Simulated assay, not measured.
Amino acid sequence: MPKIIAAFNMTLDGNCDHTAGIPDAEVHDYYTQLLNESGAILYGRTTYELMQYWRPMINNPTGEKSMDDFARAIDRIPKIIFSSTLTETGWDSATLATKPLEQVVAELKQQPGRDVLVGSRSLIIQLANLNLVDEYQLCIFPVIAGPGLQLFDNINDRTVLNLIKTKTFDGGSVLHYYKPASSGSNN
């Protein structure tokens, strides 16, 4: 059964604005590998539109290997987009969800296959509130960004997480892998 993995970047102070971090080649390489090993990624409209940044690099590579490899990985992975305003995705590997998030995730978890990534702040919050995230992979950039969008605002209940492992990148970013503690200790 696939795991639902919330994979997201943020600054040391919790800011998750995509312009606040400092991804380097090593971080891009990590996420390229994660995408290549996963079966699908879920996006909300806003993050999906931000990810369109990578599409031109498919036909016009930058020459920066880590970025070009990431662009190919994000192009290949099936993307399920949750939006009430989009009518088409414009990307061959992306489809618009036709069912509610909770139902789509329940169906994905029942299918054999690879893990499913969640790459949007809004979807991570919704799935966390539904206790449907099996693992959090949070890459913390060594930056204090100040005011901005926080990843975990609007969480309904306190959730205890167990640290599984960490990965430190040469540039100073640290990836934290967490698993929710048993439901009895989430209060």
Rank of each mutant, 00 (worst) to 15 (best):
A25M: 03
A25R: 11
E26T: 05
E26I: 05
D29K: 13
D29L: 05
L35V: 09
N36F: 03
E37C: 05
G39Y: 13
I41K: 02
L42Y: 05
L42H: 10
Y43I: 08
G44M: 08
G44E: 07
Y48F: 13
M51P: 02
Y53G: 04
W54R: 06
W54D: 10
M57W: 13
N59L: 07
P61V: 02
T62C: 04
F70E: 05
I77G: 01
P78S: 10
K79Y: 05
K79Q: 08
I80C: 01
F82M: 13
F82E: 08
S83V: 07
S84V: 14
E88D: 05
T89Y: 07
D92W: 04
S93R: 15
S93A: 12
T98K: 12
K99Y: 02
K99W: 03
L101K: 06
E102F: 09
V104D: 10
V105I: 13
A106E: 04
L108R: 02
L108D: 06
K109P: 03
K109I: 00
Q110W: 14
R114G: 08
D115Y: 15
V116C: 15
L117G: 00
V118A: 08
G119A: 13
R121A: 03
I124R: 01
I125Y: 04
I125T: 05
I125W: 01
Q126N: 09
L127A: 01
N129M: 11
N129C: 00
L132S: 04
V133W: 01
D134G: 14
E135S: 03
E135F: 04
Y136E: 02
Q137P: 03
L138A: 00
C139N: 04
F141K: 00
A145C: 02
A145I: 01
G146W: 13
L149Y: 13
F152Q: 01
D153K: 00
D153T: 00
T159I: 10
T159N: 00
N162L: 02
I164M: 05
K167E: 10
